[in-house]
């Protein structure tokens, strides 16, 4: 490799790191805003303020107000809690179910493996949205129900990746060696296989978060998103944007600002995922 290429490579890495840090910073800021929402805004995200219905952005209401006179900025702050919880929670549920499944499948091999993979085929052949809806009707209209419904649909990706990685790792010399000296299965998995599959799984996790936020916003469009202004959780960004879609012509700010919040958050997670992949899983770029 020429020196020029090396310099380019360094520049690239620096650029990549900067983007990664920027994304991380944005995500941290959004999370913090969600936690500190009551301190950051003098307004309540709930209730009815009769005199302030559907105002545009102003000094007292930076992002304007909505159909019940609630401050949109405040609602977006509180909404960060729901949307991030949905994103991260769903991804974690999917991760746990999926990697365990993939691990068992890949590690055991043989007929159990093919049976488990046939089940994955079936789950994969179901229309996602339909299953979301059915599960969220079955599990109830609260944050836990939505999390579980989304998680139960999106674990398949983790299962496939985990299984693939396990199959690779099983071939490694040291795994075979460990098995030869009679190490227990649990030990082999914990010691030798998990560390190997952690990288790709973490990258998948990062990409699953924006996917879950998008999925929740699709549920919101159908009217099944999370909305409970008086609870600690508040109303998701998806639901806020859906309210805005119904007022788009006259009051574009109601869809614009939640839309931007979703956009920048998802963008950050995607850049974070790209960056992590470069570092943890350089082959898969």
């Amino acid at each position: 490799m020429s020196r020029q290429n090396e310099a380019e490579e360094q520049r690239r890495q620096r650029g990549q790191r900067a983007l990664l840090l920027l994304s991380l910073a944005f995500i941290a800021a959004v999370t913090l805003c969600g936690f500190l929402a009551p301190l950051l805004s003098p307004y309540s995200p709930a209730g009815l303020q009769e005199g302030r219905i559907l105002e545009g952005p102003s000094w007292s209401h930076w992002l304007g107000t909505d159909g019940l006179g609630r401050d949109l900025f405040t609602r977006i702050l509180y909404g960060a809690r729901v949307s991030l919880t949905v994103g991260i929670g769903t991804a974690l549920i999917a991760l746990i179910i999926g990697s365990l499944y993939g691990l068992i499948s890949g590690y055991s091999g043989g007929p159990l493996d093919s049976l488990l993979m046939r089940i994955v085929d079936v789950v994969y052949s179901l229309p996602d949205l339909l299953i979301f809806i059915l599960l969220s009707l079955l599990l109830g209209r609260n944050i836990a129900g939505v999390l579980l419904a989304l998680g139960l649909v999106s674990w398949v990706r983790f299962a496939r990746i985990a299984r693939g990685q396990v199959l690779q790792a099983k071939e490694f010399v040291y795994v075979e060696g460990a098995r030869a000296i009679g190490a227990s299965h649990l030990r082999i998995i914990m010691r030798h296989i998990l560390p190997n599959i952690a990288g790709p799984i973490l990258v998948t996790l990062t990409f699953s978060i924006p996917a879950a936020i998008l999925a929740e916003s699709t549920l919101s469009f159908i009217g099944l998103g999370i909305n409970d202004p008086y609870s600690e959780w508040g109303t998701s960004w998806g639901t806020l944007a859906q309210d805005g879609w119904r007022a788009m012509r006259t009051y574009p700010h109601i869809i614009l600002f939640p839309g931007l919040a979703i956009f920048f958050t998802i963008l950050s997670f995607n850049y974070l995922g790209n960056g992590l992949r470069d570092i943890l899983d350089p082959k898969g770029k």
């Binding site: 916003s217 699709t218 469009f221 879609w245 956009f263 998802i266």
Partner: peptide, 10 residues
């Protein structure tokens, strides 16, 4: 990335 950062309805 823009294409996958916005919910379809938005």
């Amino acid at each position: 990335t823009l294409g996958i950062s916005v919910p379809t309805f938005i």
